[in-house]
């Protein structure tokens, strides 16, 4: 029990559970199933982008991917346009979304490496270009996803939303890669001390490259799922995930300075963030109050989780 309590991610689950209970109590248990399903569904998207952001942040200070929203939008837009509501084109659509992710990831790292730009500025600049590409490609037309996909994205299997199952599979893979695979060790090693990692023979460039590509691919996948779930791609659909992706990583107990990551915390934090918003909704809070509380909670969690600096 003590071993579990010492994990950095348990607190996000306690917090999520607490908020869930408070909300259920307020509604008298009427919406238990609906609330849980909605939480799993909407958390799934933050989980997928959060996992990618987690690997990037773990690479060390200064590493963060700001192109996630633009990548989501472009991947969703391009995939829906290629599929053109036809059920037979589903695989092609997925391929297009993944190709968009890979291209953006490669471009991001090329900027970081070749121009030696800080990742924040590199991913920011590329996100401008990607965003423009999405506007140009989309032309404001809203194309519906193929029926198969929209049914899949909105349906549940044994009461669990399908998108949450997808997120679970991806999280399991990410956990294996992080905890058991050599790649995860490399990412953590680079985040703890890049110079030491290089001297120890870690392929630093290759690992960082793979991480930025992985993050962009996960963002593309989340964009694809989100556009299928919401019945079409919208130009601003990724906007809220910029802050959310960073927030879930931090609340989930991953070290912001890099070097230490954990997958379960992303789940706790994503559920927590969604549940806070829906709790405030059930209390009838306005949009401003909801934002205010979200901000106060993020800061409160970070302050509570912080350790006193060594004297």
């Amino acid at each position: 029990m003590r071993a579990i309590l010492a994990k950095p991610w348990v607190w996000s689950f306690f917090a999520a559970g607490g908020v869930w209970l408070v909300t259920i109590m307020f509604t008298g248990g009427a919406s238990t199933l609906g609330l849980s399903q909605a939480a799993l569904t909407f958390a799934a998207f933050s989980i997928i982008v959060g996992l990618g952001q987690m690997f990037v942040i773990t690479l060390g200070p200064g590493n963060v991917d700001l192109s996630i929203p633009a990548t989501m939008t472009l991947a969703g837009t391009a995939a829906l346009k290629v599929m053109d509501t036809s059920d037979g084109m589903v695989l092609a659509g997925i391929a297009v979304a993944l190709a968009v992710g890979i291209t953006i990831g490669v471009f991001n790292y090329a900027l970081i490496k070749l121009l030696r730009i800080p990742p924040i500025i590199a991913t920011l600049s590329s996100s401008f270009i990607v965003q423009s590409a999405a506007i140009w490609y989309n032309r404001g037309i809203r194309i519906k996803p193929p029926d198969v996909l929209s049914q899949f994205a909105t349906a549940s299997t044994f009461g669990v939303p399908n998108v949450a199952i997808v997120a679970l599979v991806i999280s399991a893979l990410a956990w294996v890669i992080l905890e058991k695979g050599i790649y995860g060790r490399w990412v953590s090693a680079i985040g703890q001390n890049m110079r030491a990692a290089r001297l120890a023979g870690v392929p630093v460039d290759g690992t960082r490259f793979a991480t930025y590509v992985l993050c962009a691919v996960l963002a593309a996948l989340a964009g694809f799922l989100l556009s299928c779930f919401s019945g079409g791609a919208a130009l601003n659909m990724g906007a809220e995930y910029l802050l959310t992706s960073i927030a879930v990583v931090v609340i989930g107990g991953t070290a912001v300075a890099g070097g230490f990551a954990n997958v379960p915390g992303i789940w706790g934090a994503s559920l927590f963030l969604f549940l806070v918003v829906s709790m405030l909704n059930t209390y009838g809070a306005s949009a401003g109050v909801r934002m205010l509380f979200t901000g106060v909670i993020i800061i409160g969690v970070v302050v509570a989780a912080s350790r006193k600096p060594a004297a």
């Binding site: 912001v256 934002m291 205010l292 901000g295």
Partner: peptide
């Protein structure tokens, strides 16, 4: 004092300021 990452704290503050602004001028 708490050795916090500024990115995260200001990220949280961006919600706070945004919320206050919406409350002031919906």
């Amino acid at each position: 004092l708490r050795n916090l990452p500024s990115i995260v704290v200001t990220l949280g503050m961006s919600f706070v300021w945004g919320g206050l602004a919406v409350l002031l001028l919906p």
